[in-house]
Protein backbone atom coordinates (compact mmCIF):
# COMPACT_ATOMS: atom_id res chain seq x y z
CA UNK A 1 0.00 0.00 0.00
CA UNK A 2 2.92 2.38 0.61
CA UNK A 3 3.41 2.43 -3.16
CA UNK A 4 0.51 4.90 -3.25
CA UNK A 5 2.79 7.54 -1.71
CA UNK A 6 4.08 10.24 -4.05
CA UNK A 7 6.46 13.14 -3.49
CA UNK A 8 4.37 15.40 -5.70
CA UNK A 9 0.96 15.41 -7.34
CA UNK A 10 -0.03 16.13 -10.92
CA UNK A 11 -3.07 18.37 -11.33
CA UNK A 12 -5.04 19.42 -14.40
CA UNK A 13 -6.84 22.71 -14.00
CA UNK A 14 -8.74 24.92 -16.41
CA UNK A 15 -7.80 28.33 -14.99
CA UNK A 16 -9.77 31.28 -16.42
CA UNK A 17 -10.44 29.22 -19.54
CA UNK A 18 -6.89 28.06 -20.10
CA UNK A 19 -5.77 24.47 -19.48
CA UNK A 20 -2.78 23.97 -17.18
CA UNK A 21 -1.04 20.78 -16.16
CA UNK A 22 1.04 21.34 -13.06
CA UNK A 23 3.17 19.40 -10.65
CA UNK A 24 2.41 20.54 -7.10
CA UNK A 25 4.10 19.85 -3.77
CA UNK A 26 2.03 18.18 -1.01
CA UNK A 27 1.04 20.85 1.51
CA UNK A 28 1.16 23.72 -1.01
CA UNK A 29 -1.99 25.80 -1.06
CA UNK A 30 -3.96 26.58 -4.20
CA UNK A 31 -3.11 30.23 -3.49
CA UNK A 32 0.64 29.63 -3.63
CA UNK A 33 0.40 27.59 -6.82
CA UNK A 34 -1.80 30.20 -8.53
CA UNK A 35 0.47 33.09 -7.60
CA UNK A 36 3.89 31.46 -7.92
CA UNK A 37 3.48 28.76 -10.57
CA UNK A 38 0.74 30.31 -12.73
CA UNK A 39 1.31 34.03 -12.12
CA UNK A 40 -2.29 34.81 -11.18
CA UNK A 41 -1.37 37.54 -8.72
CA UNK A 42 -4.84 39.07 -8.73
CA UNK A 43 -5.59 36.40 -6.12
CA UNK A 44 -4.39 38.12 -2.95
CA UNK A 45 -2.66 36.71 0.11
CA UNK A 46 -4.16 38.32 3.19
CA UNK A 47 -3.98 35.99 6.16
CA UNK A 48 -3.31 32.33 5.26
CA UNK A 49 -5.80 31.28 7.93
CA UNK A 50 -9.03 31.39 5.95
CA UNK A 51 -10.37 34.43 7.77
CA UNK A 52 -10.03 37.33 5.33
CA UNK A 53 -11.23 36.03 1.96
CA UNK A 54 -8.82 38.10 -0.19
CA UNK A 55 -7.56 34.85 -1.78
CA UNK A 56 -11.03 33.78 -2.95
CA UNK A 57 -11.37 31.91 -6.26
CA UNK A 58 -14.14 29.75 -7.68
CA UNK A 59 -13.50 26.02 -7.75
CA UNK A 60 -15.95 24.34 -10.13
CA UNK A 61 -18.25 27.36 -9.88
CA UNK A 62 -18.31 27.66 -6.07
CA UNK A 63 -16.30 30.21 -4.10
CA UNK A 64 -13.42 28.92 -1.98
CA UNK A 65 -10.51 30.39 -0.05
CA UNK A 66 -7.48 29.34 -2.04
CA UNK A 67 -5.10 29.76 0.92
CA UNK A 68 -6.77 26.87 2.75
CA UNK A 69 -7.41 24.58 -0.23
CA UNK A 70 -4.51 22.16 -0.67
CA UNK A 71 -3.56 22.15 -4.34
CA UNK A 72 -2.86 18.42 -4.48
CA UNK A 73 -6.41 17.60 -3.34
CA UNK A 74 -7.79 19.09 -6.59
CA UNK A 75 -6.57 16.68 -9.29
CA UNK A 76 -9.00 18.09 -11.87
CA UNK A 77 -10.82 21.38 -11.42
CA UNK A 78 -12.14 24.43 -13.18
CA UNK A 79 -10.80 27.49 -11.41
CA UNK A 80 -11.97 31.06 -11.92
CA UNK A 81 -9.81 33.81 -10.45
CA UNK A 82 -10.66 37.49 -10.20
CA UNK A 83 -8.74 37.92 -13.46
CA UNK A 84 -11.09 35.46 -15.16
CA UNK A 85 -14.12 37.69 -14.57
CA UNK A 86 -12.83 40.07 -17.23
CA UNK A 87 -13.50 39.06 -20.84
CA UNK A 88 -10.56 38.19 -23.09
CA UNK A 89 -10.88 41.58 -24.88
CA UNK A 90 -10.57 43.41 -21.56
CA UNK A 91 -14.27 44.20 -21.13
CA UNK A 92 -15.15 44.15 -17.47
CA UNK A 93 -17.80 41.78 -16.14
CA UNK A 94 -21.06 43.61 -15.27
CA UNK A 95 -20.24 43.05 -11.58
CA UNK A 96 -16.81 44.62 -12.00
CA UNK A 97 -18.30 47.53 -13.96
CA UNK A 98 -20.98 48.05 -11.30
CA UNK A 99 -18.37 48.14 -8.53
CA UNK A 100 -16.29 50.57 -10.62
CA UNK A 101 -19.20 52.90 -11.34
CA UNK A 102 -20.68 52.76 -7.83
CA UNK A 103 -17.25 53.07 -6.15
CA UNK A 104 -17.96 49.82 -4.36
CA UNK A 105 -14.39 49.21 -3.32
CA UNK A 106 -11.86 51.47 -1.67
CA UNK A 107 -8.36 49.92 -1.64
CA UNK A 108 -9.54 46.85 -3.55
CA UNK A 109 -7.46 44.26 -1.72
CA UNK A 110 -10.56 42.25 -0.81
CA UNK A 111 -11.93 42.46 -4.39
CA UNK A 112 -11.44 38.75 -5.19
CA UNK A 113 -13.64 37.73 -2.24
CA UNK A 114 -16.27 40.41 -2.68
CA UNK A 115 -16.64 40.15 -6.47
CA UNK A 116 -16.53 36.37 -6.80
CA UNK A 117 -18.92 35.90 -3.85
CA UNK A 118 -21.25 38.40 -5.52
CA UNK A 119 -20.97 36.39 -8.75
CA UNK A 120 -21.99 33.19 -6.95
CA UNK A 121 -24.86 34.98 -5.20
CA UNK A 122 -26.22 36.47 -8.43
CA UNK A 123 -26.04 33.15 -10.28
CA UNK A 124 -29.08 31.96 -8.33
CA UNK A 125 -30.57 35.11 -6.80
CA UNK A 126 -31.31 37.99 -9.18
CA UNK A 127 -32.65 40.31 -6.46
CA UNK A 128 -31.05 39.58 -3.07
CA UNK A 129 -32.10 41.58 -0.01
CA UNK A 130 -29.55 43.05 2.42
CA UNK A 131 -29.54 39.97 4.66
CA UNK A 132 -28.89 37.70 1.68
CA UNK A 133 -26.08 39.96 0.46
CA UNK A 134 -24.54 40.00 3.94
CA UNK A 135 -24.69 36.19 4.21
CA UNK A 136 -23.07 35.73 0.80
CA UNK A 137 -20.28 38.19 1.58
CA UNK A 138 -19.72 37.14 5.22
CA UNK A 139 -16.58 35.22 4.30
CA UNK A 140 -14.68 38.31 3.14
CA UNK A 141 -13.36 41.10 5.33
CA UNK A 142 -13.09 44.64 3.98
CA UNK A 143 -10.46 46.32 6.13
CA UNK A 144 -11.44 49.71 4.71
CA UNK A 145 -14.78 48.83 6.41
CA UNK A 146 -16.67 50.04 3.35
CA UNK A 147 -19.55 47.60 3.69
CA UNK A 148 -22.31 50.08 2.88
CA UNK A 149 -20.81 50.96 -0.49
CA UNK A 150 -20.20 47.25 -1.19
CA UNK A 151 -23.91 46.54 -0.57
CA UNK A 152 -24.87 49.43 -2.88
CA UNK A 153 -22.57 48.12 -5.61
CA UNK A 154 -24.06 44.61 -5.34
CA UNK A 155 -27.47 46.21 -5.84
CA UNK A 156 -26.13 48.05 -8.90
CA UNK A 157 -24.73 44.78 -10.26
CA UNK A 158 -28.19 43.17 -9.91
CA UNK A 159 -29.75 45.96 -11.94
CA UNK A 160 -27.22 45.47 -14.73
CA UNK A 161 -27.34 41.71 -14.84
CA UNK A 162 -31.10 41.38 -14.36
CA UNK A 163 -32.77 44.58 -15.57
CA UNK A 164 -36.19 42.90 -15.47
CA UNK A 165 -35.93 41.52 -11.92
CA UNK A 166 -34.79 44.70 -10.19
CA UNK A 167 -37.46 46.88 -8.69
CA UNK A 168 -39.98 44.08 -8.24
Amino acid sequence: MEDLLEQSALVQWRIDGELHELEVVPGASLLDVLREQVGKTGTHMGCRTGHCGACTVMIDGAVAKSCIAMAATLPRATITTIEGLTAADGTMHPIQQAFWDAAGLQCGFCAPGILLSTAELLQTNPAPNDAEIDAALAGTLCRCTGYQSIRRAVGEACVRMYPDAAGE
Binding site: G50, H51, G53, T56, I59, A62, V63, A64, K65, I68, A69, G113, S117, E120, A135, A136, L137, A138, G139, T140
Partner: peptide, 10 residues
Amino acid sequence: MGGGWQVHNR
Protein backbone atom coordinates in the same frame (compact mmCIF):
# COMPACT_ATOMS: atom_id res chain seq x y z
CA MET B 1 -21.03 28.55 10.91
CA GLY B 2 -18.33 31.13 10.36
CA GLY B 3 -16.01 31.47 7.38
CA GLY B 4 -18.65 32.41 4.82
CA TRP B 5 -19.72 30.59 1.69
CA GLN B 6 -16.07 29.96 0.78
CA VAL B 7 -15.68 27.71 3.82
CA HIS B 8 -19.21 26.29 3.63
CA ASN B 9 -18.47 25.16 0.05
CA ARG B 10 -15.32 23.24 1.03
